[in-house]
Write a protein that binds this DNA or RNA. Structure first.
Lengths: 217, 217
DNA sequence: CAGTTCTCACCTAGGTGTAAAATT
DNA sequence: AATTTTACACCTAGGTGAGAACTG
């Protein structure tokens, strides 16, 4: 999956052990098609039947709160497939559907049955974060030129398709000289999240947990 | 370092957590030179002054005894350097000296000060294994054709230097068709080790620890 | 014919020994 | 003269979109 989701985590217990995991859930019950002349995704019927749930457990798991908080947690190794019989542990999605990635922070002492092929457990030791700007629509071929350009311009592995003849604009050219530049990040506190989800309030333990999202572009 | 050291471990407590680490210690206090006409390494003076000790902590650390015992533990990412100012965490050695790799099994509850830049602690919670057949002499350029051929024939990354014109012998040709072939392994029990090292006896906890060595060729 | 699969050239990233050049 | 460093071609391994081929 590119761009990869990247998060910064604050407020964990430095000495407690945690798993961090991602799953990807349907946004609605619809199938979509892209209408080129209006540049919009339109509903094209009901969703296909749901697929076996998969969870991507971040490869740095298990790690201490301290370790997680000292790094940007990147999900750039997460892979997607439309093959419902996949045996590579990839996350299985339907093409032409809308999905929302979720980040789960799972306390070790609560993770008795954490598995790549079972839904993430819910309860006191697990907190889940979603960032609405990361909703995406799955395709098997790109439906418009903007997304193709984003992919080619931002993914190092697609360098071979960059049109070096096409000149960058003045601003872009300047940006390129700042190799360390990163787009602005957005911060979402656990309180924001609980409000958004109309959740009934978290334990003290989690009250300071903050997770910040930035795209890896 | 190629060929990489690979070990199989038996007899750990499946539910206990362990680090596994490697360091490389001088075999003697001498510097060597290779005498081509006799195909032998000869003493060529006293060793250079010792170098800051480094430890390679196996990247699968920290893991349970169960996890360690279920896999072949391979040290193929271990890197060597002759640069005493190295800041990449590589193990620093002198060229033209004889060295012996050691494998350390370190119980988590004993590993308070385990660090890549400090000597491995010794004591009740740490057991160390050496395999005399892994002694090697460091060089900056290969000193004889046999070692060059071993490196080129056995290391996939050196495939570009293989002389596909030179025909394999009948036996070698047959061997090559068995992709899964591995050289015989040698088993060393902790008792063997204690005898060899004239150690004063281990705790019950470790009495069944066995470590088996095989080269990754 | 919209959607999917497959093969391919072209990249990133990094592990090899060679041979020339530099060092001591 | 022996040893070490450096630039380089050639690999492994795997992530890209293009475009042809295929599917229903």
């Amino acid at each position: 999956m590119f761009p990869a989701m990247r998060v910064k985590i604050v407020g964990l217990d430095p000495h407690q052990q945690y798993y961090i995991a991602m799953d990807i859930v349907p946004v609605d019950n619809k199938r979509y098609r892209y209408v080129y002349h209006s540049s919009k995704w339109m509903v094209a019927g009901n969703a296909d039947s749901p697929v076996p749930p998969r969870v991507y457990i971040h490869p740095d798991s298990l790690a201490s709160g301290d370790t997680w908080m000292r790094q940007v947690v990147s999900f750039d190794k997460l892979k997607l497939t439309n093959n419902e019989l996949d045996d590579q542990g990839h996350i299985i999605l339907h093409s032409m559907h809308k999905y929302q990635p979720r980040v789960h922070v799972i306390r070790k002492d609560f993770s008795s049955d954490l598995s790549p092929t079972k839904p993430v457990p819910s309860g006191e030791g697990v907190k889940t974060f979603s960032f609405p700007e990361t909703v995406f629509t799955t395709v098997t071929a790109y439906q418009n030129q903007q997304i193709t350009r984003l992919k080619i311009d931002r993914n190092p592995f697609a360098k071979g398709f960059r049109d070096s003849g096409r000149n960058r604009t003045g601003l872009e050219a300047i940006m390129e000289t700042y190799a360390f530049w990163r787009p602005p990040v957005r911060t979402l506190t656990f309180e924001d999240f609980t409000n958004m989800q109309k959740q009934q309030g978290g334990s003290n333990f989690w009250s300071s947990l903050v997770i910040t999202f930035g795209m890896s572009v």
